[in-house]
Design a protein around this nucleic acid. Structure first.
Length: 313
RNA sequence: GGCGCUAUAGCCAAGUGGUAAGGCACGAGUCUGCAAAACUCUGAUCCCCGGUUCAAAUCCGGGUGGCGCCU
């Protein structure tokens, strides 16, 4: 019989962390984070990491696993996550995945399979790709992909440079993106060795936006700016951590171009925008338990545990 | 009280006679290795009334609201 793994998702500020901890207390659980920014060390306040007090003795995995000047990918995440799940299950504990990164959740829940490439080959391709793309306009890059893999180009569209380049790279590595897409629909559930109980914490949009705004104010009081200053020297590097919401919005303030208040408003705005994108993602998850996150923590936890007991019978 | 300026989508805003640019927000959505990223889609007949004209957001008169100045 498959082990049941609880997955708590929801937009930023919907209360995921707190629910995860409560569940872990009741189910002898360990929290496994599914957050593309909390994996970075030292980005604490801005990414709303759980504090030691909040964790209250509950172990959290896949947080602080990498330096912020390094890059990381979904594929890495999925492998690490499955390892952790096994480790926790072996100890007879309950793994509880908690996080808001849609792609990461999807990779785990739908057991997405990523191609493995030889590292040397990949490095070689990276260099060639650089030459190939250098100086080209986006339209030209689109044409290039169109000549290699028409279907993929049409699907991605002219505007999305990032994905066009990725598809070209895949092609150079000997894989047609369009053929992968055919085989592995992003939303197709590949069976995995786990039974996932996916929970989506939902609440009225206005309430959520209000909570987000308030949380930003709290982050400021907790000293995000210190972390912003730490990241500031790296602002022009191509690093994942630099794009985290909660930091880049204050770079203009440090440059002296905007006031602190203006930057704070921008951050609130960006956080709200992000929450909306997250919701779009989670709405599409299959077989999920939708819980009204504006209810009390106890009620929410009870609802989830009832369902959990039912599923793990 | 007088004089001047102004009134375009939720907000900012272009357009000064031929039938409403753009940006942001909101909403909807895409997503297979940077994903807290990147990208796509979606909205108004132009404050009100009257006039001039084949034709007005665009000109004229009046009204109303806002802004500024003056006494």
């Amino acid at each position: 019989m498959k082990n049941t793994v609880i997955v708590i998702t929801g937009p930023t500020a919907s209360g995921k962390s707190g629910i995860g901890i409560e569940l872990a207390k009741k189910l002898n659980g360990v929290v496994v984070s599914a957050d593309s920014m909390q994996i970075y060390k030292k980005l604490d306040v801005g990414t709303a990491k759980v504090t030691e007090t909040e964790a209250d003795g509950i172990k959290h995995e896949l947080i602080d696993i990498i330096d912020y000047d390094k890059n990381f990918s979904v594929s890495d995440y999925k492998d690490l996550c499955y390892d952790k799940l096994d480790e926790i299950l072996e100890q007879g504990k309950t793994p509880i995945i908690v996080g808001g990164t849609g792609l990461y959740i999807n990779a785990v829940v739908n057991n997405m399979e990523f191609n493995k490439f030889d590292e040397a080959l990949e490095n070689e391709v990276n260099v060639k790709l650089e030459d190939l793309i250098n100086g080209k306009t986006q339209d030209e890059i689109y044409e290039l992909l169109y000549s290699m893999d028409k279907e993929a180009a049409l699907k991605i569209g002219k505007g999305n440079g990032k994905r066009l380049i990725r598809a070209i790279k895949l092609n150079m590595l000997g894989v047609e993106k369009s053929s992968i897409d055919e085989k592995n629909d992003l939303w197709h559930k590949n069976p995995s060795k786990y039974n996932f109980l996916t929970v989506f914490l939902d609440m009225p949009r206005t309430l959520l936006y209000d909570r987000i705004n308030k949380r930003v104010d709290i982050m400021l009081k907790q000293g995000v700016l210190e972390e912003v200053k730490m990241l500031y020297p790296l602002r022009n590097e191509k690093l994942t951590a630099v794009q985290a919401i909660g930091y880049k919005e204050f770079f203009n303030y440090l440059d002296g171009e905007s006031s602190l208040e203006e930057c704070t408003d921008v951050l609130k705005q960006k956080s709200r925008n992000y929450a909306k994108r997250q919701i779009t993602w989670f709405k599409k998850l299959e077989d999920k338990l939708i819980v009204d996150a504006s209810k009390s923590k106890d009620e929410i936890v009870k609802e989830i545990i009832d369902r959990y007991n039912e599923e793990s019978k």
